[in-house]
Design a binder for these strands. Structure first.
Length: 268
DNA sequence: TTCATTTGACCTCT
DNA sequence: AGAGGTCAAATGAA
């Protein structure tokens, strides 16, 4: 078993222990609000770390091809552009490119990267405009872009489509992510299938500056929405969805519910 | 002054 | 021709 797999399991075990602690806290019903919150935060960080570890595992498997595909698609590639809105022999980036990843959230989320909005468009048969973002570090050659669109009003739901991969290393909150540059030696073990696999962009923090200040609200993550029960273990599905729930969702009960499944999973 | 957002124009694709 | 994606001037915020 490789180092990063062990690390991921350690994080999951730790998450399980913290969840048990939280369950104990909840069983006492009243009091210790701050202790409860602290435990929830620790649990979220644990799962964030796990996601980061697994992301690194996965990206080493798939990024090479994707990067090749993206490299010729940079909007700022220069060649082919001769003035505003003018293109020469440059094909438009299609939404359907293989490297796209889709997620659905009930709040606008910050994925840890700095995005700059470059356009907004009303889409046919949609009540809401679609916003276009690219990485702030495009000048460093980063080709990552994303599209954000509200798809439901009540409750609000936002669809985010990520295109391309970040070639910059400028996350806004790097302290929340584990940097793991260990070589990947063992791809044979089980890979968790998260309901979105935008593992390039671990979505655990929010910033009001981007993606609509007025709509922004802090969000809390429900671990049970990221981690699937053991019978859902499968190979990586880049187009699966991630559900991110807002703060008014019952996070705590969700975490507690999840712990039984996690117990099962950790036996593998 | 610098950087981000808005928005109309213009591009490619179907 | 219409839809979707991108550019870049204008504008606003820090």
């Amino acid at each position: 078993m490789s180092w990063d797999t062990k690390k991921a399991i350690e994080e999951l075990v730790r998450g399980r222990e913290l969840t048990n602690q939280l369950r104990d806290l909840l069983s006492k019903s009243v009091g210790d609000e701050s202790g409860r919150e602290d435990t929830v935060n620790k649990i979220c960080n644990t799962f964030a770390n796990t996601l980061s570890i697994l992301r690194n595992r996965n990206s080493s498997c798939s990024d090479d091809n994707d990067m090749k595909e993206d490299s010729g698609e940079s909007p700022s590639a220069g060649a082919g552009k001769d003035g505003r809105g003018s293109y020469k022999s440059k094909r438009r980036k299609s939404v359907a490119v293989a490297s796209s990843r889709r997620s659905i959230a009930s709040a606008l989320i910050d994925d840890g990267y700095a995005w700059r909005k470059y356009g907004q468009k009303q889409i046919l048969n949609s009540n809401h405009p679609r916003s276009y973002y690219r990485c702030t570090h495009k000048d460093q050659g980063c080709v990552a872009t994303k599209q954000v669109q509200m798809i439901e009003d009540d409750p609000p739901k936002y669809e985010t489509i990520y295109l391309g991969h970040h070639t910059c290393n400028n996350t806004l909150n790097p302290s929340h992510f584990i940097v793991d540059d260990h070589p990947i030696s063992d791809h044979s073990s089980v890979i968790l299938s998260f309901a979105n696999n935008n593992l390039n962009n671990s979505p655990f923090l929010s910033s009001a500056k981007q993606e609509g200040k007025e709509d922004y609200k802090p969000i809390t993550y429900n671990a049970s929405d990221y981690l699937l029960s053991p019978h859902h273990l499968s190979t990586f599905d880049p187009l699966a969805e991630m559900r991110v729930l807002s703060a008014d969702h019952d996070v705590i009960s969700g975490v507690v519910d999840y712990v039984q499944d996690l117990d099962e999973f950790l036996k593998f």
